[in-house]
Design a protein around this nucleic acid. Structure first.
Lengths: 133, 133
DNA sequence: GATAAAAGATACCACAATAGTATCATTTTG
DNA sequence: CAAAATGATACTATTGTGGTATCTTTTATC
């Protein structure tokens, strides 16, 4: 059971690094050095962050990445969603189909409560806060 | 991100069914019918439940399964552990090695808090309670 | 304009965990 | 002994994650 995958983890760390540079354009080689993530993998992660609107990219010589949002407006639950899809702790699947009892299932109800808590807690953490910590 | 795998889910449901029968010995065909889980898969799950001490098994004609514990003493976090191993929401891995910064990592600190909450909440739910619900 | 340094797009491979199947052995009751 | 049950175990399939490789496009600078 893993809350954050490596994708997400690296995504958060990359974001934190880029944000820390206060608007300076940061390119991949620098990030590779700082985060010790394999370059092609990191590139894919960065492309995802661009597509999801967390950072802006600049092509060509001297290009790189800059935050697209203020640091205190980037919530890690959003980053997690970008890499892992919606945060759902249980799916109530019966084989491939949705379980027909999910409306009344007491287990689902309990898990849902826990899930809400997780999402809400993850939703309180911003990149800004991680940088302070 | 999934809190409970299908294994665990079926395990919980099977346990609940067996417990509900109040000590009557329940055999696989009945469980297959009730839970609509493929027989060989369910058998494997039941064997796991036996090995982990949640139920007792009886071989031979008229055999089957009975709870090994009182219903209010079976916590679903334990069932989850039986199928999924220890509940850890983040692993702080850097490539294959443990991340060297994990002691001071603010992200890890936050995730750890959430993890503790999840485990504690899962640790409050018993099979007995699910049957009441 | 050519060159080089950057990111974009995309397709592919590797590995591990989960999900599920199949087969044979053992036990027990009648 | 036969039948009905579980035990043990090995195998296959599917999926998600992690990671690589390659080619295209953009842009600054000489």
């Amino acid at each position: 059971m893993k809350l954050l995958t490596r994708n997400t983890d690296y995504g958060i760390r990359a974001l934190a690094f880029i944000v820390k540079e206060e608007g300076r354009v940061v390119a991949v080689p620098e990030l590779v050095k700082a985060l010790k993530v394999p370059r092609p993998f990191l590139r894919k992660i960065l492309q995802r962050l661009v597509k999801k609107g967390f950072i802006k990219s600049y092509k060509g010589v001297g290009g790189g990445f800059r935050p697209a949002l203020p640091a205190d407006n980037i919530y890690i639950v959003e980053v997690a969603k970008a890499f892992q899809g919606p945060v759902t702790l249980n799916e109530c699947l019966l084989k491939k189909d949705l379980c027909p009892n999910r409306k009344v299932c007491p287990l689902k109800r309990k898990i849902d409560r826990i899930e809400k808590h997780v999402v809400s807690e993850l939703g309180k953490i911003t990149i800004a806060e991680l940088l302070k910590g």
